[in-house]
Structures are given as C-alpha cells and as structure tokens.
Design a protein around this nucleic acid. Structure first.
Length: 824
RNA sequence: GCCCGGAUGGCGGAAUUGGUAGACGCAAGGGACUUAAAAUCCCUCGGCCGCAAGGCUGUGCCGGUUCGACCCCGGCUCCGGGCACCA
C-alpha cells in the first residue's frame, strides 16, 4: 500500500471496481432477507447541494451496513424529473425542458457516483421518461373508473407567477410553496384525486407507524383534522330548503341566535331578499377579491352582511337572522355555522359588531353569566342552563344527550368531519404527465382507452413564457378524435401535479424493467414495504401523505398487498452555515464538487455524519472538515506502520494473551458492539464515529507494538477499524482492506462479529459516593459480590474522611457501577 | 391561540434504563521536531479557591420527588418548527 493517503486515486479506483463488479446490484432472492433502503429522490435542478450530500451519506451508511450484515439490500436512485424549473430554464435559455432536464440528470448522476454511493444504478428511473409516466396514466384511468379521479369546477388556489393551480397543501401562509408569490382564488375546472375517501384509514394508520417520528405523525393528524360533532338542519322561514350546519358544540345549540354562511355558500344569493341584494353582492365580491393570505391573517376583521332571511332554531324556535360572514370557510363542514356568541369567540365579536342577541346556555360551575357584562365568549365546560330538559347536566353529558335527541327527532345526526380536502392535481403546465382524457363536445369527458396509452408529451412545443400552458398551443396534440363518437375533439392539456410521480416511484424501483404493467406483483411484494425511508422534514405532510394515499389506492386496485409504503422514516435536519440555511443570497454555500476535489468523498461523508446526529440541523464547519480529513490520515498512517508488524501473524489465541493484549482486545470488541448498536438501533453515526476514533487512539498508544505475541491482536484491531469504517468511508476502507492483504472487496468480509467474552471486564471501576456526592473510586474483581464491593468502598481512605463522626444509615449498591453511602 | 421539539464548556456535540456531566472532534494556549514554516507528535483546556493535595460550584430559571436528577414531576423564560377564524 501507498505511504500517503491520496483520496482522488483511491476513490476513482474503487468506483471503477464497484461498477465493473456490479457490487450493488440487487436481485430478488426469496431465500435471503431483504432490506429496502430509500432516500427521497432529487429534483434534477442542476447540481447536488450539501443537503443531498448529507441525505445520501446517511442512507449509504445504512445500505452498506445492512449489506455487510448479510441482507439483500435494495438501494435505488432516480429523478423526480418533471416540474416547473425545467420550463423556466427553457424560456430563459431558449432550449427544451427535456434537454435541460436530461443534461442535469447526467451531470448529477456523475456527482452522485463521485460520492461513492452504493446504488443499484440498473434500477435508475426518471419520472419524465414515457416508460415511467405511461403507467401513471394507466393508474389514473383506473382511478377514474373507480371515481377516485374526478373533475369539478371549484375555487382553487392560483399562483399567478407559476400560472398554475396549487393543492391546499402547497399553499404556505397564503403563498406558493415553490415561488412564494401570493396565491389568489380562481374558479376553474380541474382534476382531483379523492384522497378524502381514505381520510379515515390514513388517520388510523398514523397510530400504526411506530417507526415514524412522532412530530411527522402529529402534523399528518392535524392535516387530516378529524373532528366529532353533529350535522343539524335549520328550517328556513319562507323556504322549503333547510340550512345544514356542522358543529362540534351541539351542547350550545340552545344558545344559537343567528346563522353565518360562507360567502361562497350555494344558497347565499337565493336567500338574499331583493332590498339586500346590492349590499350582499358587494360583500361577496369584496371577500373574493381579498387575498387568502390577508383573509386568514390574525388581525383580519370579522365582517358580514345580513341576507334579509331568517331561519329557525329547531330546539328553541328562535328566529335567527342569516348572515354571510367572511370568516366562514366554504370548504370546511357544510360552509354554514350556527352562531353561538356566548360560547364562541368569533361569534361573540360578530354579534357585538352587528348588535345580535346573546343567550347564555353553559355556566362554569358555581358562577352566573350575564350576557350584558360578558367581555368574551366562555368556551369552557360547565353546567347547562336555558336549555330546556337538558338544564343541570354537565355540558359534556349534554353533548351526548343532545346528539341523541337530535337523531331521535330527525333534526340532525352525529357525524364526523375532516379538514382534509381532495387533492387537486391539475396543473396548467407543459412539463408534466398529460392527464389522459379527451374533451368531446358531444360526449363530454372521455378517458383515453387503455390501448391508446401512452399519451406522449409532444416535444415540439414552444416556450415563450407568455400565454399560459405551452401544451395547449400544440395543435397536433390538442386536436384529436373522440374515442366514443369519432367526432373531432380536444385533448386535456392539464398535466398532473409532480407529486403524483413521487407517490409511487418507490414501487416502480422494485421492477423498473417490467414492461407489461406498472408493477410486477411478485417483485414488488418481495421488496415492499420500504424498510427505511430517509429525507427532509419539509415533506412531512405533502409527499409523505400523498405516497401513503397512493399506496392504499394501488392496493385497492390489486397491484400490491401492503397498506403502508414506509415502515421506518428518518427525517434529517438542514445543513446550516454561519447560523443560516445555505443559500446563494447569503453567500454561505459549500460546493460539494470543491469539497470532493480538495478532500475526497470519504472526508465529505465522514464529516456530514460526524458533526451531528441525522435528525438535527448540521452546522457546517470548514475546520471540522479538516479534522475529519486528519482522522482518515491518522488511520491510514497507523495501518501503514502496523502492516509490517502483523504480516504473517499467527491466529489469535485468547487464552494466552498478555494483559495489554487483553485490554486492547476488550477495547476492540466494546467498540464493535457500540458501533453496531449506534448504526443499527439509533442511526447515531456521530457517536459511532467517535467510538472508532477512541479505538484508533487506543491502538496508537498501544505498546509494545513490535512484540510478536501482540501481532494477532493488533491485526484484529486494525482490521476491525477498517471494517467499522467501511459504511462511512467506503473507498478508504476498500483501499486499506486490500493493503492489509485481502482481495475481493471489503463488504464481502462482512460486519465484524462482537465477541462478548472478549469484551468482558476482569476488573470493574466502582464509583463511591457519600450522600450522593462522588468521593472516591475503587477497583474490584468483576466477580466480586455485593458485600465485597461495599467493604472495599467503606475501606477507601478518601471515603472514610467524609464519613468521620457520622454513622452509616444505608449503603446502596448498583451492581458493577456504584456504591452510595448514606451517612448522617 | 393550539400542538410538537429544544436549551449542556469558546464552538459542534456526548452521557442509550435515574447512577463518575462534558466522550469524540473543532478552536485556543504551551511544548517537541525544523534554519524557518507547514505537516506531525506531546501536554493543558467549564467556573471559582489553592503552591499542591484537594475543595466548592456547575447541564436556561424557580420549586419538588429520590440515597442519588442533564434525565422524572409541577411552574416559568427563551429559541426553533408545525397548524391556525376548522365551527
């Protein structure tokens, strides 16, 4: 082996070796235990960034570790390749999104290969390949058949910059999740997936995913937003129709004094009396023009308008004026709210503003409430008053009893409501998967027959940046004939949200070369579910919820038999430098290329893993990188210097070792145990690396090294270091492993075996406390019994000094660890 | 407002089940080697007192449980994240 560690040559050599030997090819094998490890695939934006380096380094440690442990590991990589930046780049550079995308993929693939990541590149896929997206079109058609994909006209989130629709999940604080411009409401015809059909199951399974971080599950539960309550029908004065409300507070029904409807409520105009018409229309217009961001802001004033109509409280027969109110959401519940100003703060403020009546129906125990003097609504539980037969009950009891009463009287029913809305997937963009339907003037919406798939995205579009969706201007694409009636018809030009592609790519990885359907059931079944999924926390709701939904849909379509795609989820933290997320504008970006050029991929990997545990943010430090590089150099030097001492070493005989030899061996096996546990159970690579560093320090200071009796121990020690570093710094480990005289690749050697008998301490250091304070330390034989240890502790000179003049009350013994003497 | 996290040396972090707080690394200081520097190696490194042995103190703040608390409980402060007029 070389005397000096020169990363570049070493890394190129082993990357070639892995490629030539197909070292990471995954082949289905029923006789072997599989392990599916997946990192979220990247968008091919141009070059990889430090977040990718971190994400993929973490994943690669696990993949290589599991492989060394004998698992049949599937570790694939691909490209989330549809999306807007490609279109923007096309406009800017007067090129084509496909060209830009495939160039980026080629470049980034090269970067990932330079990182030495152990992917099975034979399974690589790009979602913009027709071989991928055509299957998605087929799935769409099958969902359409089942009513899971449908078209509806509704108000949608419209991003004026991206000129496209956004799903609710893609709106952050009223702004586009991608470009940050303010989202407007626009009425559009668009395609949706019926994720709400799966709301209950998606929620249920959040309680059956113990391998997911609790906060991700909480975020999903909040997003699904299940709540229990009642639907109640309020008759209208002078109308046959009724207004249906949803409430979780049916216990306050006797206090409902007016009605609030969303301005978009279908009956809003119908209920408006002629003299109120102008005022109501002006109000609706005003609300709709208000940006959603402002509308949901904290200090946004509650406003409304009286429609002129009245409804009747079905239990009190009170006449309730019907208002439109700007804070009532059209798409939650029924878009209508029974207003109880005494027990709901929003209704309280609204009633104050418009002089509407207040009726107290719940009083805190032992307290009277006077509507004249109330300063805010009282939402707490209490005792029922002014509620007829329910007076005197606690409000929680009344909740049940009133619900039963409503059902019995046919006024209402118990119901469950979800906050989750259907997933709007129409995007008015070119660079996406065309929705495979045809709009016929005679037949309406006609799905493209399965035999006519794929609907290929035409390449001859022009990208000017003006005039909306470029796809809609490709005449040859748009003009077609209706599959039903044969008349001229127009193709749908909306493409699918790119989150659709990422909702099932992990399934396609199981069989990317299967050409007779989306999934080869046998192969998908062998690999799925993903045993470990790793990615950024920013996808806690969006991608991870959609992927769960899609998995369940594909199960119900008969493609697979699993309920959940990802057994274990690890969400890694951001990469931070100088206190902020790396970004061009802050000028704190570290370029992976430069890093690899200067130190090599192994140092980049080592530092990414060592600086912080994966779920925490990682503070990038250039000096820290130096430190990691220094460590590798130290190990290299140590191996180089040890090599002549261990060549021809006899096999290790544990019984004839010297004391020093035993001690080093103990360190080796304790380290093997610790590193194994840290990687396998905790993903705490930082402490695993620290443990290896400690072992290296121990080997360095081990003396005498040149005693031939120590050769077998030294050999085991240095080889263990190399094996333990293999998942972390693979090229480096390969080179040393070869240098130490082994052929065929280091992963073949397998993960080192922990020998419990070698790790057993012969002597134990026992901490001695007096009244809980550390006062001394004694060394005892490992076999020493409780009395013996206590005796040794009590006999310790320093300990005695602290016991002087006091009597021993109690002696606590923690086996193998500590003695605490309580005196007083 | 509600729901999650988190707070430990100059810095990143460790302490896995309530049992030696500060592992490992970075930075800093001192020394060796060198004509010199780099690299490398050795030593010191929470605070206070002390020549030293050693002692006291210390994990955001206040209190509690315990023989013993960074860890458990109650109450705060600050920081980060998510949701937010969800009826």
């Amino acid at each position: 082996m070389e005397e000096k560690y020169i990363p570049k040559g070493v890394e190129e050599k082993w990357q070639k070796f892995w490629e030539a030997n197909k070292s990471f090819k995954a082949v289905e094998d029923k006789n072997r235990k599989k392990y599916y490890l997946l990192e979220m695939f990247p968008y091919p934006s141009g070059r990889i960034h430090m977040g990718h380096v971190r994400n993929y380094s973490i994943g690669d440690v696990v993949a290589r570790f599991k492989r060394m442990r004998g698992f049949n590991v599937l570790h694939p990589m691909g490209w989330d390749a549809f999306g807007m930046p490609a279109e923007n780049a096309a406009i800017q550079h007067k090129s084509h999104p496909a060209e830009w995308t495939y160039e980026n993929i080629a470049y980034m693939r090269g970067q990932l290969k330079k990182m030495g990541l152990s992917y099975d590149w034979d399974r690589e896929l790009a979602t913009c390949d027709v071989e991928y997206y055509k299957w998605e079109q087929l799935i769409f058609l099958q969902m359409y058949k089942k009513g899971l994909a449908y078209k509806k006209t509704s108000f949608v989130n419209w991003c004026p910059t991206c000129e496209t629709v956004l799903a609710n999940e893609q709106v952050e604080e009223g702004c586009c999740w991608r470009c940050d411009s303010e989202v407007k409401q626009k009425e559009l015809d668009q395609w949706s997936f019926k994720i709400t059909d799966y709301a209950e199951e998606l929620l249920d399974y959040t309680y059956k995913l113990p391998g997911w971080p609790e906060r991700v599950l909480t975020m999903q539960r909040n997003w699904i937003g299940k709540s229990f309550g009642c639907e109640i029908d309020f008759p209208l004065e002078g109308h046959l129709a009724k207004i249906r409300v949803f409430t979780t507070r049916q216990d306050t029904l006797f206090g409902a004094t007016f009605m609030s409807l969303a301005p978009e409520h279908p009956m809003a105009l119908e209920l408006t009396t002629p003299e109120k018409r102008a005022e109501v229309e002006a109000f609706i217009d005003k609300v709709q023009k208000t940006e959603k961001a402002k509308r949901t802001a904290e200090d946004f004033e509650k406003e409304g308008v009286f429609t002129g109509s009245f409804c009747i409280n079905p239990v009190t027969n009170r006449r309730m004026p019907v208002y439109l109110a700007n804070f009532v959401l059209t798409d939650y519940g029924t878009g209508a709210v029974m207003a109880v100003p005494t027990h709901d703060q929003r209704d309280f403020e609204f009633a104050g503003k418009y002089g509407l009546p207040l009726q107290v129906v719940i009083e805190p125990e032992g307290e009277k409430l006077d509507p004249q003097t109330m300063e805010c609504a009282v939402t707490a539980e209490g005792i029922m008053v002014n509620s007829g037969q329910f007076d005197g009950l606690t409000s929680s009891e009344a909740k049940e009893r009133i619900a039963d009463y409503l059902e019995k009287e046919g006024i209402g029913r118990k119901t469950v409501n979800f906050r989750l809305r259907d997933w709007g997937i129409s995007r008015q963009r070119y660079w996406g998967n065309p929705i495979p339907v045809i709009n016929c003037e005679l037949c309406g919406v006609v799905p493209v027959p399965e035999k006519d798939l794929p609907v290929v995205l035409p390449m001859d579009a022009t990208f000017s940046g003006e005039g909306g969706n470029p796809l809609a201007r490709v005449e040859a694409f748009v003009n077609t004939t209706c599959p039903q009636c044969g008349e001229a018809a127009r193709r749908e030009t909306d493409t699918m949200d790119t989150f659709v592609e990422s909702s099932w790519y992990f399934l396609r990885y199981c069989c990317p070369d299967f050409f007779s359907g989306p999934l080869d059931k046998a192969r998908a079944e062998y690999w799925m579910s993903v045993d470990q999924y790793i990615g950024g926390i920013e996808h806690a709701v969006l991608h991870l919820l959609y992927a769960r939904f899609f998995t369940k849909v594909l199960r119900d379509l008969g493609y697979i038999d699993i309920d959940e795609p990802f057994i274990n989820l690890l969400t890694q933290g951001m990469v931070i430098k100088d206190g902020a997320k790396m970004s061009k504008s802050k000028g704190n970006v570290v370029d992976p290329n430069a890093l690899i050029e200067k130190y090599g991929a192994d140092t980049a990997r080592l530092f990414s893993l060592f600086a912080a545990p994966p779920e925490k943010d990682l503070d990038w430090s250039d000096q820290g990188v130096d430190g990691s590089f220094r460590f590798l150099n130290r190990v290299w030097k140590l191996a180089y210097e040890t090599l002549p001492l261990i060549e021809g070493a006899s096999s290790l005989d544990a019984d004839t070792l010297s004391e020093e030899g035993k001690a080093l061996r103990r360190a080796v096996h304790k380290t093997i145990r610790k590193v194994s546990e840290d990687i396998e159970d905790r993903f705490h690579f930082n402490t695993a690396i620290a443990a290896v560093m400690e072992l290296v320090n121990a080997i360095q200071s081990f003396e005498p090294k040149n005693d031939p009796r120590h050769a077998p121990v030294l050999k085991e020690a240095i080889e263990s270091v190399v094996l333990l570093l293999t998942p972390i710094a693979p090229h480096f480990a390969e080179e040393l492993w070869e240098g130490l005289g082994h052929a065929g690749g280091v992963e073949k050697a397998g993960w080192p075996t922990f020998d419990p008998s070698a790790a057993v301490d012969e002597e134990l250091l026992i901490v001695v406390q007096v009244n809980g304070k550390l006062r001394g330390k004694v060394t005892v034989q490992a076999a020493a019994g409780e009395d013996e240890v206590k005796g040794a502790a009590l006999a310790d000179e320093k300990v005695k000094a602290f016991m002087e003049g006091k009597s021993v009350r109690k002696v606590i013994y923690v086996p193998g660890k500590l003695v605490n003497i309580v005196v007083g």
